[in-house]
Design a protein around this nucleic acid. Structure first.
Length: 500
RNA sequence: GGGCGCGUAGCUCAGCGGUAGAGCAUCUGCCUUUUAAGCAGAGGGUCGGUGGUUCGAGACCACCCGCGCUCACCA
């Protein structure tokens, strides 16, 4: 049994010995179930001096204070911690067994609620049962509340690498981590509830795709053995969801993982969560208002406010959000009109801004770089950047009145892109031409240019209604609303190099 | 990929050329309302890895591995 544990040390060895001793006493160290009828929060919130309420609770031992024939301990359940009190003269053999239990063990307890001399609401144990023996020492921090009511934590489990690799431990010993993930879940639920209430249908489309598309990104490649073909993990849901609009759904959305084979940093994880929504007979103007309403709904239902602190910024989500034109924003900062400028002028302009310009850099890349350098960092309050150059947007519909532009917007908050949306291109002839232009870019060395998706073209040749489409980066939204600076802190298991 | 930083006991850290340390955790003894419980004692380390410099290396040098921050890339 012990040989299965690689890094045996004395602490672990000791716990195996305790496990054996417990087994010899006839105690089964891994129980099948325990009837719980209360929790730590319920006990503390519904305390009545005059009533010795009986409760059954279960949780993990997080602190033990033994005083000979009596002991105090804290157990932690899903809701928090509560103190328990055990006496040898009351629980006899169970007290002897308790001596073989450790911090980290999961126990079930029955007892009555009381208040100690020092005023802590606790459970006076009448029965204690081991539910799961913990064989590894938990890196428990000590907590104390000072005179001012501030919580001071000593020796907190802080090593980021260990916290990410062993998230289960992180979640046990750092309760605020759990909170963020609960908010993450609530944010997604609020979004789904809103979309459902608006009458849109949640759907699922392929993760494994023979062609990848819908975004500019490098894919992961996998292989199907029986078909003997390479398949790509999707970089976006877009092209499949639009096929469903062709099929006659009036509004479809999907909340799911996308995969992009690119660098990792505090804003990027190789797999990340995206919500994409497509609504027929609507355009990007409608979508801008929809996004404001949806985000406001999420903020209010989950957090009860539209005011958030992010880093040193105060962010207010109150609609309507500011709107600025992509081209005018750049022109205002640099005097450069990126639509009319020649390639050479763009190149010069970029160089002046300190952007590294390689000779292969295409026009689209240059424009994007310039925008990222001069405009993006200033977009702290929610801002719609609207009407993008056509060459940046091969799937968006041409602007109804402005040449060289498409009807597209991105929402920027705290300097990051939070969502991307457009009036979807539904003209199959134009779409084919855009794909062909992408192929030329690919041939010129742009690894992220689109492939031609003949089946998608066939679909819209049947006729796709006018449609508004949206993509929202869920991880970044969660970061923003929880004041987290790294995407790794809102993903349970962020990508890491394998352990040796 | 570049720059900076980190890796010493289960956890948090000190040590920066001369016998591997502290607090918590663990173990033994005492202790029936404690709460960073207390008191007395004990065990615990290939100092991330491999080479090198040196009489002598956690410490200095080189390379490697892993992580963090940051820049680039990634709309």
């Amino acid at each position: 049994m012990e040989s299965t544990v690689k890094d045996i040390n004395n602490l672990i060895k000791r716990r195996y010995e305790e496990l054996n001793e417990l087994t010899e006493k006839g105690i089964k160290p891994y129980a099948y179930s325990f009837d719980v009828d209360s929790d730590s929060e319920d006990i503390k919130q519904n305390y009545n001096e005059n009533e010795k309420r009986n409760v059954k609770i279960a949780g993990r031992l997080m602190a033990i204070r033994r005083m000979g024939k009596a002991s105090f301990a804290h157990i932690m359940d899903y809701k928090g911690r509560v103190q328990i009190y055990l006496r040898k003269d009351e629980i006899g053999d169970q007290y002897t067994a308790f001596k073989l239990m450790d911090i980290g063990d999961v126990v079930g307890v029955e007892g009555y609620v009381f208040k100690t001399k020092t005023g802590e609401i606790s459970v006076h144990v009448t029965s204690l049962e081991l539910l799961s023996k913990s064989l590894r020492p938990l890196p428990v921090a000590k907590e104390v509340i000072d005179e001012d009511g501030n919580k001071i934590v000593y020796d907190q489990f802080a090593d980021k690498e260990l916290r990410y690799r062993q998230r289960y431990v992180d979640l046990i010993v750092n309760p605020e981590v759990k909170e963020i993930f609960v908010y993450r879940s609530k944010i997604i639920t609020a979004m789904r509830t809103y979309l459902d209430a608006e009458g849109y249908l949640e759907v699922e489309t392929p993760v494994l795709q023979p062609l990848y598309g819908g975004a500019a990104a490098k894919p992961f490649i996998s292989h199907h053995n029986s078909l003997d073909i390479d398949l790509y993990l999707r970089i976006a849901d877009e092209l499949y969801l639009k096929r469903l609009i062709v099929g006659g759904f009036n509004g479809v959305y999907e909340i799911s993982k996308d995969f992009r084979n690119e660098g990792m940093d505090r804003l990027h994880n190789p797999e990340f969560t995206m919500m994409e929504l497509y609504v027929s007979y609507k355009d990007y103007n409608w979508m801008m208002e929809f996004v404001e309403k949806m985000i406001n709904h999420i903020c209010k239902t989950v957090f009860g406010t539209l005011e958030f602190t992010y880093g040193k910024h105060q962010i207010n989500f109150e609609a309507p959000w500011k709107r600025i034109s992509f081209v005018e924003a750049i022109e205002g900062k640099t005097g450069l009109n990126v639509i009319n400028a020649t390639d050479e002028e763009l190149r010069e302009g970029a160089k002046k801004l300190g952007i590294e310009v390689s000779s292969v850099e295409g026009r689209a890349k240059l424009i994007d770089e310039i925008f990222g350098t001069v405009v993006e960092p200033d977009l702290i309050q929610p801002t719609y950047v609207i009407d993008y150059p056509l060459i940046l947007s091969p799937l968006a519909k041409k602007h109804r009145s402005k040449d060289g532009l498409v009807e597209r917007f991105e929402a920027y908050i705290a300097g990051w892109e939070i969502c991307n949306a457009f009036s979807e291109l539904n003209d199959p002839i134009d779409q084919r031409k855009r794909f062909e232009d992408q192929v030329k870019l690919k041939e010129a060395g742009d690894e992220e240019a689109h492939q031609i998706d003949e089946d998608f073209l066939r679909a819209i040749e049947y006729g796709m209604p006018p449609t508004a489409g949206l993509g929202v980066g869920i991880d970044r939204l969660v970061m923003l609303l929880n004041n987290q600076s790294s995407i790794r802190d809102v993903i349970f298991f962020p990508q890491m190099r394998p352990e040796v």
